[in-house]
Write a protein that binds this DNA or RNA. Sequence first.
DNA 1: GCGCAGGGGGTCG
DNA 2: CGACCCCCTGCG
Length: 265
Amino acid sequence: MLLDLGFIDLDKIAESGQCFRWEKTDDHEYIIPACGKTLKVRQSAPDVIDADCTIDEWHHGWAAYFDAYTDYRAIVASIDPKDEYLTRAAEAAHGIRILKQSLWEVIASFIISQNNNIPRIKTTIKRMCDTFGDFPSASRLTLCDHSIVRSFGLGYRDTYLLDAAIRYLCDEPESEHRSDSYAEARAYYLTYKGIGEKVADCICLYGLGHKEAFPIDVWMKRIVGAHYKGRFPVEQYKRSAGVLQQFMFYYERSSAGAERDRQPA
DNA sequence: GCGCAGGGGGTCG
DNA sequence: CGACCCCCTGCG
């Protein structure tokens, strides 16, 4: 089924560091596991994807996953034209959307991501999913033997993950926090052991869809230091700061990669 | 090819 | 502010 979203680039999303389980099957083609289902999807033209699902399946699941009801062109248009760096970043990152992944998967994935590199994050998550046949639920993890969890190679993060699973289960009736404000949700997740400000913001942004969340990692610290005198004007972009963060993160990393790969003259 | 530093989308004490 | 588990990468 062809879907013209007006703003989508699968390759860039796959490299944007917000999802760790997309499987590239061919040029511009991916198998995407989410919410217990999988979607085969291909970039068929700029801003257009070909999704292997029915219109019903799209509207009742995948549309929300791809954040299809948010106008990303409007977000780009709202960028201060005097901000040259952000303008360039948004142009380079054209097509990146903020995925709405399942809350528990986001919590677990970003706990694993701390002080870690993306290749290892992906392999450890894959080991987990291969063991259980899918991304393990919180209860599944709490019920299995600790040695199983050890075998995923998470290092010291495994106790954080198990603690989070227990907290998530105990608080489950409230833990969706769908109605909470960004500030409330952030404060709640900060009470988890192993979740600091950066991961809490990732959970708010990727798991709960709070677009004002602005996760600051080492890359963003560099960017904000170099281009914003150490402080990004989040208040100016209440409805989109997290999206812009994603644009800048992608832009900085891809240009750094291009720099590295450049052949010496 | 293989061993060996170095460092990684941070967080805790 | 230093330590942190362990894998991945790059270099010898």
